[in-house]
Structure formats: C-alpha cells, structure tokens
Amino acid sequence: MTSALQVESLSSGYGTSEVITEVSFTLAKSEVLAVVGKNGMGKTSLLKTVLGLLPAWRGSVKFAGKDVTHMPPHLKRRLGLVYVPQEHALFQDLTIRDNLRLGLLSDRDFKAALDHVGQWFPVLTRRLQQRAGTLSGGEQKMLIVARALMARPQVLLLDEVTEGLQPSLVDRLADVLTRFSRDMGTSMVVIEQHLPFALGIAGRYLVFKRGEIVDSGGVDAQATERIEAHMRI
C-alpha cells in the first residue's frame, strides 16, 4: 500500500539561509503525526515546503505515490492536500457560509458536506449568514478547521490550531479531529506547542530542532517525558 504522504530528504529556506535540512518522514493512511518543537525551529516552514508555498531546494514530496514536489499549491489542494495556516486564515468580510464554500472546489457538494461537517460545529451552522469577522477568536478557529474538513481531505496539515484557544475548545477539537481521521481515513500532520493536545490525537511524533528531526517515536506513556527532555536543552 502506498503511503498517504512521503517526504524524502526535503530541504528549503529563505534567501541564502537554509531552514529545513534533509527532512524525511512518511504518513500512512488515517495516521496522525505530531510535529513538536520550540518556536522558530522551522516547523511552519516545513509545512509550507510540503505544500509548495516555499520552494523545495532538494528532496521530494510524494502524495499518494505521485511526485508533487514542484506542483503549485492550488493543484495540490485539488488532489486533497489541505493546509490550515496559523495566521490570517479567514476571510473576515465574507460570511461563514462563503468561507465554508471556499473549503470546497465547487458548490455541487456543498449541501452534503455542510450536513456532514456541520454536525460537529453547530455554533457555525446556526449563523451561516453572519460575517466571519464577527465570530470570537475560538469560533474563528473552529470555522477554519471546519472549512478544511469540508473537502474530506486525504491529508490535512494543521499549524498551531490550538493557539489562544480555551481548554474546553481544545478538547472538543481533539475529539472532532480524532473522529474525522478514524471515520474518513484522513491523515494529519499536526504542528503544536500544546503537547497534551498533540499527543492526545497523534499516534506518532517527530521532534523538530533547527530545521532537522532530532527524535521520533510512537506516542506512549513516556512520550511526553522524552519530548520534554529535548525541549529543555
């Protein structure tokens, strides 16, 4: 069976400085992988390189067995690789409905997708005509995640979705993502500062430091301890 996403010796950077060095990992179908590490270590740059927003210098990205390293982002999106950025991820002046519509490539499946995704986000489906900018910070995060789920992505890349979120919402989100990955077979790469959340939904983790993977392993009872050991140094 081909893996959902296969990253091999990927390197990239800005200008002349390399921020991602020789990163390799594979992601199986419906697997959730947590990428952890301190800020400024290149985690977001990794996702951007996988997506193509940042051009890869070396290495390759394979999506469902197909080489997509140099494919433009909007085409990857069409194949089912969906990115949830950390900042400015909403159209504040569009309605919630229009924001959700943009999660799909055509309006044909909108009704069905809304029924499916909406069940987990009642707070959104009740206010479809409202402008996204009028939602609270937590609700906006929910909308971003809901929009990403609309297209039933093959692979979901999540960048710090829990930042600034209340603990109760973090738990809700963990629940939604776990169920979605189990029911729909979606694979996820989760970049997180929030360790309990990340390890709660992931089966495996990677520790990222200065653009390189310094440790990886399965999530078990000792995972938190091992990861924190890397963070302290």
């Binding site: 927003l53 909007h74 990115y83 229009d98």
Partner: peptide
Amino acid sequence: TRLGLSTRAVIMNEMLAQGLGVDS
C-alpha cells in the same frame, strides 16, 4: 456565482485564496 466568490476571495487575500485551491 462560484467565480464571483473566488474573485472576492482573491481581492481580500490572494495568498489565502491560493492556499484554498483558488486558481488566482
């Protein structure tokens, strides 16, 4: 229309629209 929605999205934030699969 869908095209209109894509257009409004590009006007407001082109990067984000591209990330969502809009062919800007």
